[in-house]
């Protein structure tokens, strides 16, 4: 499978990258590790005439305990001993991503901004043409939930839920300079599988910042998939908590792989702060998440099952966080 010809830019500074992207705002893509973008390009999905490769851009790399460069390779994060021992929960999530070979090239920024996925989108030109295309690429209707307004493609990044429950922030560079936003608010609650985050066209993800107390949180990531490798999540649940004995000092829960964005459920977890995380409370939170989650039939496993498993995985993640905090 070949790629259609495109122009390749290899800027060396963030400013230059952003400027290039702004110059070709409808006609370019940033290229990080390539493991998500290039398969899509090979299948002629939303191909642009210019790629702006980020590999030579200074200031996008680096791994420290409070900052991860957007271009940090997933495998490097996995292997960084200091990082891994400080954030075992992030390590769990990374090891669940795709395959070691994908992680060798794939980047943190790429995983956070992963293109949403759908059985009716991630197909060849031939395949999509045979069905008349879809909303997300070249078409005007959705085949998952037949209508013309909204795309249901699923956000399948494994890292975002975990970083969200650690209250990570992301730094974004744009034509007007830099800004920092909580990761959780990067993803658009009113958006869909196409318009999925609050980044202006041309903006560039620079780095992820972890708050000081992130290391004090016990975090975990549980992923549902058919194969223990290769597969994107059928759902992914991240949880993180801080405890004083039995008392909850802070609790966060994140869900990915089910809807068009990874989301947090603070309204369900905040009320627990200050009290004990009992089995009953865990169950109540799990039920709350299940009620709110709406998987559709665009992944391998049936949506009814995935919805049900959301409850099981939330309960397990919260229980695990609580119990490992006790042991620690």
């Amino acid at each position: 499978m070949h790629l259609d010809p495109f122009e390749l830019s290899q800027p060396t500074t963030i400013e230059e990258a952003v400027r290039l992207r702004a110059e070709h705002v409808d006609g370019s893509d940033y290229l990080a590790g390539g493991t998500d973008l290039l398969p899509n390009y090979k299948m002629h999905l939303n191909v642009r005439p210019r790629l702006i490769a980020l590999g030579n851009v200074a200031g996008l790399d680096g791994i420290s305990l409070d900052r991860i460069g957007a271009m940090a390779r997933l495998a490097d994060l996995e292997r960084d001993r200091a990082f891994a021992s400080s954030y075992p929960g992030i390590g769990e999530a990374i090891r669940e991503i795709a395959t070691p070979l994908v992680r060798a090239s794939g980047t943190v920024g790429g995983n956070l901004l992963l293109e949403t996925r759908c059985f009716f989108f991630n197909q060849s030109e031939f395949w999509r043409a045979s069905l008349g295309y879809c909303l997300k690429a070249d078409g005007d209707r959705c085949h998952v939930v037949p209508q013309k307004e909204k795309c249901y493609a699923t956000f399948s990044g494994d890292l975002a839920p975990t970083l969200e429950v650690l209250d990570a922030e992301v730094e974004i560079a744009g034509a007007d300079g830099r800004r920092r936003v909580p990761l959780e608010r990067l993803y658009d609650a009113q958006g869909d599988g196409i318009h999925r985050h609050h980044m202006a066209p041309g903006e560039l993800l620079v780095a992820v910042y972890l708050p000081k107390d992130a290391r004090e949180r016990v975090a975990t990531y549980l992923k549902l998939r058919v194969r223990p490798s290769f597969d994107f999540p059928e759902l992914g649940v991240a949880a993180a908590g801080r405890f004083d004995g039995d008392r909850v000092l802070g609790l966060r829960l994140g869900l990915g792989g089910v809807e068009t964005r990874p989301r947090r459920f603070d309204e369900l977890t905040d009320p627990v702060v200050g009290s004990r995380l009992s089995d009953e409370r865990i169950r109540a939170i799990a039920e709350g998440v299940v009620r709110q989650s709406r998987p559709v039939h665009n992944t391998f496993l049936a949506p009814e099952y995935r919805k049900r498993m959301v409850g099981v995985f939330v309960r397990r993640a919260l229980t695990k966080v609580r119990d490992s905090a006790r042991v620690a």
Partner: peptide, 10 residues
């Protein structure tokens, strides 16, 4: 990717 022949860990 979507036709799931078993992985080594299975």
């Amino acid at each position: 990717l979507e036709y799931k022949i078993p992985a080594p860990a299975q």
